[in-house]
């Protein structure tokens, strides 16, 4: 049973077609990459899946149920979490508070409980903080709990953002360019982290990435997007040798690739 199915997705921004007949099926447990040149429509696809945009045409099935009519927070509550290309934390609150708020959808109390400080309120609040601390501990971030995210080094901010996504108890995690702006040693740690959370939390991961090192060492399957259309799909080694991909995307980066491999 596929975890996520995108069927014949077309998306327009006014007259511009950002996504063209996009089809993809993700099986549980996969680690799949989406690559493509800038402006190919990768982030648009993530925004469509997370419910931020409604596709002009087509259907998206998560656990075999259509999610295109749901609001973003409802999609999240089904177990579909994501991170953002440019880290989007709530910077006026501490790391711990950030990880608590992301559990907002399963807050089992109403605002009245909070105002009257009822028993339900305290129970749920405790559970939320406990969950957040568990995640922070497992990611070795418990020392950062009281810090403000913007004061953390960039690599840690990424870790915190991934932690925030994990509080949702996701079955599918979308990572939008997790390695963007990182130095090589950060990237190595990120690769380890992604492999580790995948096993630890039994995740299916779908990631967008420009860093060939990340894509090639992590992904089992790759999907190459150009002008909103899939131009190639397959294992990393197939993709590397695909002439269409080289032409569209890797062509101008061949030298870099050789250096990395």
């Amino acid at each position: 049973m596929p975890l996520l199915e995108l069927k014949q997705i077309n998306h327009f921004f006014g007259g511009l077609q950002a996504v063209h007949n996009f089809n993809l099926t993700i099986e549980p447990g996969e680690l799949i990459g989406l690559i493509g040149p800038n402006g190919a429509g990768k982030t648009t696809i993530f925004n469509l899946v997370s419910g931020f945009y409604k596709p002009t045409q087509g259907d998206i099935l998560f656990h075999e149920k259509s999610i295109i009519h749901l609001k973003p927070h409802q999609v999240t509550s089904l177990g579909l979490a994501r991170t953002f290309q440019n880290i989007r934390m709530w910077n006026s609150m501490t790391v711990l508070e950030n990880l608590c708020i992301s559990q907002h959808y399963r807050m089992g109390y109403s605002f009245m409980d909070a105002i009257f400080s009822t028993k339900t309120y305290h129970e749920h609040e405790k559970a939320v903080v406990k969950r957040a601390m568990e995640i922070l501990e497992s990611l070795e971030l418990s020392e950062a709990a009281g810090e403000y995210p913007k004061n953390l080094p960039y690599g840690l901010q990424r870790r915190v953002e991934i932690g925030r996504a994990l509080t949702i108890k996701p079955s599918l995690l979308l990572l939008d360019e997790p390695a963007a702006g990182m130095n090589p040693s950060d990237i190595d740690r990120l690769i380890e982290l992604i492999q580790w959370i995948r096993e630890q939390f039994h995740l299916t991961i779908w990631l967008i990435e420009h860093q060939m090192k990340v894509v090639m060492s992590l992904c089992e399957r790759l999907c190459v997007l150009d002008f909103g259309q899939i131009i190639a799909e397959g294992s990393p080694s197939d993709i590397k040798n695909n002439p269409r991909v080289i032409k569209a995307y890797l062509g101008d980066e061949e030298a870099d690739d050789d250096a990395e491999n």
Binding site: H73, S77, S92, R164
Partner: peptide, 14 residues
């Protein structure tokens, strides 16, 4: 206030 888009996508019923 901090980031409405993140709030909406990360489970807050804005």
């Amino acid at each position: 206030r901090d980031d409405e888009i993140a709030a909406e996508i990360m489970s807050v019923n804005t």
